[in-house]
Design a protein around this nucleic acid. Sequence first.
RNA 1: GGCGGGGUAGCCAAGUGGUAAGGUCGGGGUCUGCAAAACCUCUAUUCGCGGGUUCGAUUCCCGCCCCCGCCUCCA
Length: 467
Amino acid sequence: MPLRLFNTYSRTLEEFHPLDSAGREVKMYTCGPTVYSHAHIGNFRAYLFEDLLQRHLELREFKVRRVMNITDVDDKTIQGSRSAGIPLAEFTSPFKQAFFEDLDTLRIKRADSFPEATDADQIAAMIEMIKTLMARDLAYQAEDKSVYFRINKFPAYGRLAHFDLSELRSTGRVKSDEYDKEHVGDFALWKAWDEEDGPVCWESPWGPGRPGWHIECSAMATQLLGEQLDIHCGGVDNIFPHHEAEIAQTEGCTGKKFVRYWMHCAHLMVDGQKMSKSVGNFYTLRDVLAKGYSGREVRYALMRVHYRAPLNFTWEGMEESRQALGRIDDWLARLREKANGAGASQSTKQGEQFEEGLDDDLNISAALGFLFETIRETNRALDLGSLDAGEASAWLQWWERIDRVLAITGKESALPPEVAVLAEARVQARLAKDWRKSDELRDELAARGWEARDTKDGQKITRRSGV
RNA sequence: GGCGGGGUAGCCAAGUGGUAAGGUCGGGGUCUGCAAAACCUCUAUUCGCGGGUUCGAUUCCCGCCCCCGCCUCCA
């Protein structure tokens, strides 16, 4: 079964074939965070979707080269540094660091590079692109000294979003500078310096200022990945104007098709509304961790719903995820015990349905459905004693393969000494048939996050709801 | 108004022109000193509403309703 992905540009499912079919290299660009505060879990939903995509492509033996930008200069970062009374770089630095920590917590693979908007090389690349656009009459400098893209000169503008330019109307959410522009839809390539920018500015052929947000991605993508990308991702809210602008700028410079597959992820919702900083209805990863959930639990919770469907974030959903992961943990523990180091006795071809689910535009629900069916069936066989060590080993091998995509295996943590003491005391209490003491010790263990189970092979101690 | 996404059991969520995966919660059972885990079992005569096509539609077509998003901050 071929790998099929939904392309926003065509609004259809398309078979995926990278430009470099022989080398199997996939060039992937993903819009990253603006580091003016901590990213919220809605942002991470998008990054998790991209991680799932990258990991699945890699499972299918593609070599992914991925770039994610870090926007460290814009209105909000400047405003933040001003109100904090510190230089821009000093203001954004802790948020950059926190972002990378959060990626690790969520087990999101690092991109090959994370270019920053304020890199001198990147600024230079942006200025070069703007020069080209000016030379081609696709851009102009307005009376306010800023440079704008002239969308009327780019007929394809609006094609990605399926917008009719004459229908564009201002929502009034952004400071209106319409009087300086030829068309309301013209967007800034270079923002002329003004007082509010303080010391933040770069020299350019059009005077001091800073780059517009959209040009940043065009410059970084083409510089680091080339003029044509295989996949470009982001949240649906990036479709317009951001990605539309990227197409216009990049293709305006190169004359080549910029992106072959556009992929967008639906929003994370809270109480039926889009999670967003401006509404204030957001949770950062740290907020969720503070409630006692682990990174992999958040990972699972945000990943288990198809990326194109809106996902409502609830604590109930977090609890469901915790339970589901516990089920997987226990299953793996049983398999490991059964396999006991034996070699795999059968091919893992039996598990192909999982990967085929993902081939279908990352249908994670179908894939997980198959996983849980497999868990039930193998558990039943273990109960009946009809699953041998070699088979258990084969299923473990299968798990290792699919977990390259899921990345949700729990870490096996060693028993802390005081827990081991309690556990041993409980074993003794049970030998003495002192049920009362045994139950007390079970409660004590539970209070420390460890669960005691009595099986026919004796007491088992398991970490509950952990990392 | 334009352009999209979604509406399937308490909650989350797959799916197919032929009669509804899976997760979670809850009830019952096996096991257990009691539990836990695991397994078994029950929980949508029904897939937003109304038409149409069809032997048959949740799935195709038409119309409508509701929710969410985008229409120059936004993942």
